[in-house]
Design a protein around this nucleic acid. Sequence first.
DNA 1: CCATTAATGTCGATG
DNA 2: CATCGACGTTAATGG
Lengths: 245, 245
Amino acid sequence: MENPNTKEAYDIIQEGFDKKAMIIILSKCHVEYEGRARSVLESGDRLILIKKDGTFAIHQELNLDPVNWQAPGCKNKVSSTDEGILLTSKKIKPNEEIKVFLDEIYNITYYNCVDTKDLEIRGYEKHMVDLAWEKPDIIEKGFRPTRREYQTENGFIDLMGTDANETLMILEFKSRKAGMNAVKQLKRYVDCFKDNKDFVRGIIVAPDITVNALEELESLQMEFIPMEAPLNLIKEDISTLDSFF
Amino acid sequence: MENPNTKEAYDIIQEGFDKKAMIIILSKCHVEYEGRARSVLESGDRLILIKKDGTFAIHQELNLDPVNWQAPGCKNKVSSTDEGILLTSKKIKPNEEIKVFLDEIYNITYYNCVDTKDLEIRGYEKHMVDLAWEKPDIIEKGFRPTRREYQTENGFIDLMGTDANETLMILEFKSRKAGMNAVKQLKRYVDCFKDNKDFVRGIIVAPDITVNALEELESLQMEFIPMEAPLNLIKEDISTLDSFF
DNA sequence: CCATTAATGTCGATG
DNA sequence: CATCGACGTTAATGG
């Protein structure tokens, strides 16, 4: 609905709530937020997006993130005041509230979405592990991979195997420059095998590694093996895509 | 526009791009993403939000975050194919692309937002101000706070007061290391009192301050008072925030 | 521009 | 419900 008056706006927004629809409001508005932080946003044109799970987001004309928002599970309400339409979004634990004062309403739309599909993500790490699995020499001569995605109490180990001396190897793959967090992660995996009397090799496989991370890695007697992420392969290798699509 | 056909949809979207408007599309669509990772989203009803800075977001009916997105600075295009309308959003460094195939279009809106206001966050600083308000000696012996959140043409002054000599003090609080921007901000506030014949003390209160900022601050005859931010209090003691509403 | 760190992070999994 | 860890984290800040 275009340029509704206050009553029309109230009715259609309430209707949207009742029908558990996605509500989209284009409006000049000002906003107050109070909760984990506290903020004020003076009047300007924004997009307000309300979802049936309670999600509430206010978008300015720039930037990816909403300027103000509420997480799923919030109680949203519309009310008609002397000043016009007021939207409130409340959450408990932690106690948070957004108040949006609609100073001028340009457009209100609601739609009941039918959407049963979930996003399917395939990271690049998987492709790197694929490669190492199929051509172990890429990692090092004599490497024999044995397990993928081995579950430990500290997470999934990307790839395990043994070297030419039958020493256990634990490999953590990163598609981008590995940082300190990768080292910590690998250390946690290696720690799972501490009780073994035998030494375990911890290895980060990534296109690059930060200086700090490399120092820390070496001080922990662990290793870094450079390997390019096959970013470009994906578009070229249609066959692998087929298995995915 | 409601339920546009392919040509109408193409035209209105192109128009939105040309006018650098915010474009909102309600549509059944399927999405492919390829970049740092790779993903596929099969057909379903979603909201597509495109901003003039290149921001591109696809929202499902649930959750706060978009299911697929592109950051500001992306090149967005609309094209008409045999299959219908195709939206593409490209970014370089890192190379990323989203393709959205509009299978059925319910609604297209674009609007040229007028929005000059920035969000003012006053969360953590408030707790520091609370503390200084209740225990002025923390700032300095003889300090008497008089006003909080005093509004000037240049924004809100966190805290004002007088010292033992009745000299006006303007305090700017930062919850983290103060930088040059904090100094500039404080200077703007102090400038509001330039016409006073009396000297005004400008003071930054923060856990720390950068070297550059401290130099600049002292050259402006302003001061720095170290104070730890009560970050931990915030999550525990939400009740103190009640005073705001 | 790179590296580091905070965020009203969000979100999913798990105990 | 709370905690923990990953994320195409993003976004801001200092160097």
